[in-house]
Design a binder for these strands. Structure first.
Lengths: 341, 341
DNA sequence: ACTGGCACTCACTCTGACTGAGTGCCAGGT
DNA sequence: ACCTGGCACTCAGTCAGAGTGAGTGCCAGT
């Protein structure tokens, strides 16, 4: 059955009221607060239909209606316009992010800003190594058989790894290895790098082959394949907003889930190559413990390329239009910042 | 008034029971569970004295007694022996930490391990830059007027900073700067470094003075003075252990406080030069929002030197002997690990 | 197709009675 | 001087029952 215009209006009104008040909304209150030009009884009929279709539900017989996940879905997809941010908000974002001195600082500021503006839990994935390109690789001799491999990417990330070499190595050897590695890898994205790394061994004179082989193994294993992702988190205190009304008993599993990097990456990690904003409502996120939460996430990066993901997590009862707008805005500013660096 | 032996026994018994059961403990239950060789009435008299002295309190008239912060203090200082860990626990710690591949990994594993073993919130401060010594400083030319300064310490930390130079700089200039900086600083602890850094400018030929001056300013400001501390946190979910019985309404301020690096540093940052274990009970920690919590912290580092702090935070109603033992053990293992690296 | 009216449902709140764990005190015993 | 048994008292927690009111579903009338 197709829902007519008015039923959609009713659904929209219910979502808005419920998000604002956190209480099941009844027909009478609804017609009073929004000027639907019909009587409560009519609205009640519409509500009954919406419930039958699975967009609403009643916590108990004599209570008002509450949107279901499906109701929120329809609301997000069809019924809401993204709220434009106020100039004041834009300025606040800009001002807050501009003071950052390095990548770590940018990420930390961004995640705190997101948490504060949306009043939710915020997550920012550091620019993914796989999606960044190599600006410089440095080898530092730590002892006769140990090298520190330091990689600097164009997104400002610096990753290091201690490498145990198969045999002793000289200063000149280090220089040569460094030269070759940099020559072949600088400017390439790590995601494109496996072949290049494989080829490194061919590029070098035999006495250093063993070393290079070890190095390329480390490069492949830890930097490319396992792609050592990092994640910043802020605003967990927002989960307790409004006492324990949302998430009453089940705060614990949520906090636990938020400590699992794997889960955060699954939810917020950049997947698409474009900066599309995704909204996962309730159990759409596929994680049992987070079925009472929604996730708004987006990719970010300099210009049109995506190097990481960020977003927020909160109760399904969430101000989607506002949250989406904020997440997008912050992502855009962070992207701009990366482009400048 | 001096407390006689039996009163102290009563206090100890009450602390132990309350920690175990989370319920106010009454005189009858007490004599049943511990074999105090006196009647409930006698215990009641003792309790009354202990209450008068401020070691116990009654939640309400007709309830059992609960230890006060002062009671816990006495218990920790005089009445408890640190529980030795079981060999199984020791082995678990060892096994878990041994798999670590680099410093980041060590810290992450340590903090998760602590959280899991103590069932509290765990905090580990990364080896403090100020207390580490410089193993190598690397300068990487990013553009004609930009340098990336990378510092590697003996504790395995790698810190980087982007430096905007006052004028263009050549490859040879970078080599010379790197040579001088390394020559002067390698092997020294950053906490001893201000003078050395100051002196850097004198060591270099005039054409590079301006650059060196900028570099030393950055070194001083960001690495030495502000000493860019990092902190790892785990187990926040443990705050919700046992429903919301501890910290009922006031979970929020606690979560908020845990997001403030400054607060965590104040609580867990290494201060003394020795690995002494500190226990801060209730408002002894001096932070308004955390007056319902206790903190057990200790320094750690290779051998006898301290490079950072770690510990746990939990309800004042905490198994102090067990927690102290675990924190110490983990700190010792992490210290050993650092000594090997 | 909408509206007003009406009977019904049921969470929530308030009340009062009851229960029982626990105390304080006192008089008597060792 | 110290311990013990006994007794009256306190008070949080629980349970049942009544009352309240927001909200619904349905139906007859416009």
């Amino acid at each position: 059955m197709a829902l007519d215009e008015r039923k959609l209006d009713v659904l929209r009104a219910i979502v808005e009221d419920y998000v604002a008040t956190r209480e099941p909304v009844g027909s009478k209150a609804l017609v009073e607060r929004h000027n639907l030009r019909v009587s409560p009884a009519t609205v009640r009929n519409d509500m009954a239909v919406l419930e039958e279709e699975g967009y609403l539900r009643q916590p108990h017989t004599s209570a008002g209606r509450v949107p279901t996940d499906r109701g929120y879905r329809l609301f997000v997809d069809k019924l809401s316009r993204i709220k434009p941010l106020s100039p004041a908000e834009r300025r606040a974002i800009e001002r807050f992010l501009l003071g950052a001195v390095d990548l770590d600082d940018v990420v930390h500021r961004a995640v705190r800003l997101l948490a504060q503006l949306t009043r939710q839990v915020a997550v920012v994935q550091y620019p993914s190594l796989a999606r960044s390109s190599v600006r410089h690789l440095e080898l530092v001799l730590m002892s006769t058989t140990r090298l520190m491999l330091v990689m600097i990417t164009d997104t400002g990330r610096v990753e290091q790894r201690l490498v145990e070499m198969p045999c002793t190595i000289t200063t000149d050897g280090v220089l040569e290895l460094r030269r070759v590695i940099n020559q072949k890898l600088v400017g390439n994205r790590l995601i494109d790098a496996p072949d290049l790394v494989q080829a490194l061994v061919e590029e070098i004179t035999p006495p250093l082959r063993a070393q290079m082989s070890t190095l390329s193994t480390v490069l492949l294993e830890t930097l490319v394949e396992h792609s050592d992702e990092r994640i910043a988190l802020a605003g967990t205190a927002n989960l307790t907003r409004g006492g324990i009304l949302d998430f009453q008993g089940c705060l614990r599993p949520i906090l636990e889930a938020l400590e699992e990097e794997v889960i955060l990456l699954k939810l917020f990690g950049a997947v698409e190559p474009t900066c599309i904003t995704r909204v996962k409502i309730g159990d759409e996120n596929g994680i049992e413990d987070l079925r009472a939460t929604s996730v708004v996430s987006t990719g970010y990066g300099p210009g049109a390329t995506v190097v990481g993901g960020m977003g927020v997590l909160g109760p399904t009862r969430m101000d989607y239009p506002g949250t989406i707008a904020t997440v997008r805005a912050v992502a855009r500013y962070v992207g701009d910042l990366l482009a400048q660096a």
